[in-house]
Design a binder for these strands. Structure first.
Lengths: 142, 142
DNA sequence: TATTGTTATACTCTATAACTATA
DNA sequence: TATAGTTATAGAGTATAACAATA
């Protein structure tokens, strides 16, 4: 489990992940605040824009969010006019979340911010190490 | 930012970290539940046991927790008789959190559980990849 | 003046159950 | 029967400000 040596601890993977995630989220939320977005909204808006229309269920699956949390998330974005819920012609239960022109414009403005956030999150690593880290992290998430 | 290809997304690092952390925490909390512990309590108890007495401030620094959250955490552990708050002879503001005999006994019982959790969290990676990943993750956290 | 621990408080996040309308 | 979305709600986590005791 780890032993204390001086002031440093051979910390648990779970703790390390929680710390890295918390720090990255705080950085992202602070950086996106001037645009009125949180990391979660930015991610969902990106998915909506790039997909050209996704079911909420899929947003939840991609972002690891509960369906009920996706409702709140899309409500926020729709309330700001950044996305629309359109009927899915293939499945009348589902509603396709699509980015509006305003949403796409905001995403473009947020591009630089997002780049800075990614850099800050992995600032301690070299470019090659970042690639390695993200590749492994993606496999960890599955 | 990433482009959609089929059903997979070149997801943001922030999202990946949040997903990995969430999944690891859920696994850890579920596995430790029979022992009446959450991941956070387990981590703090480990630090207390291995250090032989830590200031709450340091627990917060190691675990990335707000000082006020550490109060609640140590209250829980103390209420269950797993740690004690002893006066620090070198600084009368601080209180040294030390594991009790019960706390150490519980930690020993939790050892196997912790091993399983770490394995589950990084189950998709080979042993060598796990080492690489944890080393990089530790540098990301700083 | 700054720091440790503490309390109170507000806010966000997460998770579940129950419901509807479809499939 | 199962699934997509929704609502309500409860519980956990996070963050801030203010305070007493001590440095």
């Amino acid at each position: 489990m780890g032993t204390i040596a001086g002031t440093s601890v051979d910390t648990d993977v779970v703790v390390l992940l929680a710390r890295a995630s918390g720090a990255a989220l705080r950085t992202a939320n602070a950086a996106l605040e001037p645009l009125g977005l949180r990391a979660r909204h930015y991610a969902a808006l990106t998915i909506a824009a790039e997909s050209g229309g996704v079911a909420q269920r899929q947003i939840g699956a991609l972002l690891g969010l509960d369906p009920s949390a996706v409702v709140t998330l899309v409500d926020d974005l729709e309330g700001r006019g950044l996305v629309q819920r359109l009927p899915d012609p293939d499945d009348r239960r589902a509603r396709l979340v699509t980015a509006t022109a305003d949403g796409i414009r905001l995403l473009e403005r947020a591009g630089d911010v997002a780049r800075e956030v990614r850099q800050a999150a992995l600032g301690a690593l070299s470019p090659a190490e970042r690639e390695t880290f993200v590749a492994l992290l993606r496999r960890v998430v599955g």
